[in-house]
């Protein structure tokens, strides 16, 4: 991929990806984290799970060895079909086994709070 401008993948937890979420948009660039629950080799579609939330991830453009129950992060664009089912077309991905998901979740909230503070101080 050429180093042209590319959208940053917004940090999203899987449980936030529901139709009422601001992240649930056609073509939205997002970064998701979860455990590999299923992988269909024929179509290179993985299913990530985090708690009770799941997301399909199209990995056909990646050169990645996937292992069941390992934790992965993927960045890509969300495709939503007519029945509101979403699949992430992954651009990059990696195994993140060893990641502290509770720490990740808490730090993500701190990061969002910080960004909101910084943006509001600019507009104040």
């Amino acid at each position: 991929m050429a180093a042209s401008s590319v959208s940053s993948g917004a940090l999203v937890m899987l449980e936030e990806l529901n139709p009422s979420s601001p992240y649930f948009k056609q073509g939205a660039s997002i970064r998701v984290t979860g455990k590999l629950q299923e992988f269909n080799v024929e179509v290179a579609v993985a299913v990530l799970v985090d708690g009770s939330a799941t997301l399909k991830v199209d990995t056909q453009h990646l050169n990645l060895n996937l292992h069941m129950s390992s934790i992965y992060q993927f960045i890509g664009e969300l495709q939503i079909d007519a029945s509101n089912e979403a699949i992430l077309k992954a651009r990059v991905g990696r195994n993140v086994d060893g990641m502290d998901l509770n720490l990740y979740r808490q730090s993500l909230q701190l990061l969002r709070d910080f960004q909101a503070d910084q943006n509001s101080s600019l507009t104040a």
């Binding site: 180093a3 993948g9 940090l11």
Partner: peptide, 26 residues
């Protein structure tokens, strides 16, 4: 962050970008 773009011109430069979840830095 993640390396999300990559463009090599041999013997000249490597351009890439880093996505830290809040934006991409060339």
């Amino acid at each position: 962050g993640f390396v999300v773009t990559w463009e090599l011109k041999p013997n000249k430069f490597l351009k890439f970008s880093i996505d830290d979840g809040t934006g991409c830095i060339p």
